[in-house]
């Protein structure tokens, strides 16, 4: 008998186990017994059904229509993405969705190298640089987040199968899972605008900004971003017709990958572009260099 718990002792705790009200110290021992006892397994299943019915005692509460529809839209978007065939990285470009204004006919209109951009750059210059870019669905980022989510889910299931002594690990995994689910939602939700930032040199960095307009969440994913010089950092800007708003600084990983998230409420129609500049460590109140990456809304 595991951890000294007899059948009688375990049986007396099955109701509390079915209600998930056992203290952690007791839960592991009861579950260890149940795992080896067909009688207790059967009894627990019946008790769990009864416990499940308790939920009906709570009065149903209709949701406000906006909230009801918001959740529904997110669920259907997630489900549609979930049932899609497994996408390979090679297939990703085929899923690009153009939203128009591509002047060169390609997926991404190359920008002038940033070294040739005018050193004095007002809003008009930023608009000019942003013109012609297209929005592209970030399949790579979505797949990455999906894989992380699935890994977290598998880990969570494994830990749940273990004893109750691992509650701390469970907490951490649940937090990871929740964060990944939220990130996926902010990448594929119905009100997410996607912008691609690019430059001319094939070896230059590329990035995508996902703007979840419902949650005011900004997720920036970039590749091939070189490490800035000592004492320098990168800074993200949200450009409106009247202001350049800092969305924070970031540093790439050693292999040039960037994943940055920020929260900022911006009226839907006021964004003209997003851009990245090279700034002194700690960031600047306003851009002090020409943008190295930029994209229109």
């Amino acid at each position: 008998m595991s951890e000294g718990m007899t059948h009688e002792q375990a049986r007396e705790a099955l109701e509390a186990l079915a209600l998930d009200a056992l203290d952690a110290s007791e839960r592991g021992a009861v579950m260890a017994h149940v795992a080896t006892c067909a009688i207790c397994q059967s009894e627990l299943a019946a008790l769990e059904n009864t416990a499940g019915e308790l939920a009906l005692a709570a009065a149903p509460i209709p949701m406000p229509p906006a909230q009801r529809d918001r959740i529904r839209a997110r669920l259907l978007a997630r489900a549609a993405a979930d049932r899609a065939p497994e996408l390979s990285a090679a297939a990703a470009p085929q899923l690009r969705v153009e939203t128009g204004r591509s002047a060169a006919g390609g997926d991404v209109t190359p920008l002038r190298p940033y070294t040739k951009v005018r050193r004095t750059f007002g809003p008009a210059a930023w608009m000019a640089m942003a013109a012609g870019l297209v929005a592209i669905l970030g399949v790579g980022a979505f797949l990455k987040a999906s894989r992380e989510r699935d890994a977290a889910r598998q880990s969570l299931a494994a830990v749940q199968a273990a004893t109750g002594t691992q509650l701390a690990a469970l907490d951490s995994l649940r937090a990871t899972l929740t964060a990944r689910e939220r990130m996926i939602s902010s990448l594929i939700g119905p009100q997410v605008a996607v912008m691609t930032l690019a430059s001319t040199n094939p070896a230059s960095p590329t990035g995508r900004m996902f703007w979840d307009q419902q949650r005011d969440a900004w997720t920036f994913v970039a590749h091939r971003v070189p490490m800035p010089k000592t004492g320098r950092t990168y800074q993200m800007w949200l450009v409106t017709p009247t202001a350049k708003i800092s969305a924070g600084t970031f540093m790439p990983s050693p292999d040039g990958e960037v994943m940055m998230q920020a929260t900022y409420a911006l009226p839907k129609d006021s964004l003209a572009a997003v851009a990245v500049t090279d700034e002194p460590m700690g960031g600047s109140p306003q851009p002090t260099t020409a943008p190295m990456m930029v994209a229109s809304k």
Binding site: A55, A58, P60, I61, P62, R72
Partner: peptide, 10 residues
């Protein structure tokens, strides 16, 4: 959803 919402809200 009203039933689920009721339980969760509680």
């Amino acid at each position: 959803h009203p039933v689920v919402h009721g339980v969760v809200s509680r």
